[in-house]
Design a protein around this nucleic acid. Sequence first.
RNA 1: GGCGACUUAGCCAAGUGGUAAGGCAUGGGACUGCAACUCCCUGAUCAUCGGUUCAAAUCCGUUAGUCGCCU
Length: 310
Amino acid sequence: MQPLIIITGPTAVGKTSLSIDIAKEINGEIISADSMQVYRGMDIGTAKIRPEEMCGIKHYLIDEFNPQDEFNVAIFKEKCKNYIEEIYNHGKVPIIVGGTGFYIQAILYDIDFKETKIDYNYRESLWKFAKEYGVDELHKKLEKIDAYSFKTIHPNNVKRVIRALEYYKQTKEPISSHNEKERQKKPSYTFKYFVLNLPRDILYNRIDKRVDKMKKDGLEDEVKSLIEKGCTKNMVSMQGLGYKEIIAAIENGTSIDIAFEKIKQNTRHFAKRQLTWFRREKDVIWVDKNKFASEKELLIYCIAECNKIL
RNA sequence: GGCGACUUAGCCAAGUGGUAAGGCAUGGGACUGCAACUCCCUGAUCAUCGGUUCAAAUCCGUUAGUCGCCU
């Protein structure tokens, strides 16, 4: 199996700078596993790496889509797989860097998404059904076709209920059994899965500072220019942290300062969710940045780990 | 110094005699084509001391703190 390096962790821990250092050391190229940095024009709000910061390291899946384009795990996985091959062909080591755990899982375990196609009309009709008859009635539709999902998906989680129904409609197989199969899969690479972490209070502090900086750097203008280019709040890209809050403030005429406070709050929640995700992942290497005396030592440690599989 | 009001979880806050709503924050969790999404779980004995009562956060008094007004 071929080697794969993964560098992740909650937002604002400092993945980007470490990833560049590692890439230089091990002759790597970076693939971003970030659901928002793929979009062009969304730079400030996603804290996207700037070209000059890349230090010549090649980056993939950054700025490859327009905010109005469709992008999701399935697309990510296909693209990412191709890039990994490409990087091997360059004689280099692929490094996946980003905070979207779902994406990392998809690539690492080669999760299969190909069987179905999104059925927007069906989804829409189920949303309407839920609105009319209530979420519990929608949830009950699951009972006969997929008892396991019926039990495990909460009725309020309409999005997941709909996906389960859609999956069954298209494949005549319960999504829960598909998931079960996928769950058995072994990693398709020899990998090192680093999860960077910091004490909660320090992390939250960094988040606050980062959001303050986004404000100074002109996130509000960035959002406005995206709106001018035709971005609307229902687009997936505009549901990114920092974007949805500012759009809401503009639309509702509410305070922009409060919107920024809201961004901080939501970002903290997000970081917490990310950590929950990574705790559940198998075979990850937790890297508490605080335990290292310096960036340099942290780097040395990571390189040593990487070299075990290179 | 006098008069009055207030005092419920980290914060906001319902509840005026029958055994503590809710929201936010915090912490934990789920997640397999929207994932920076979506969703779930999570806490108190009501400032203090004493009294009335079968029963008090709710009534009476004490002390403390906060706020307002007055001299």
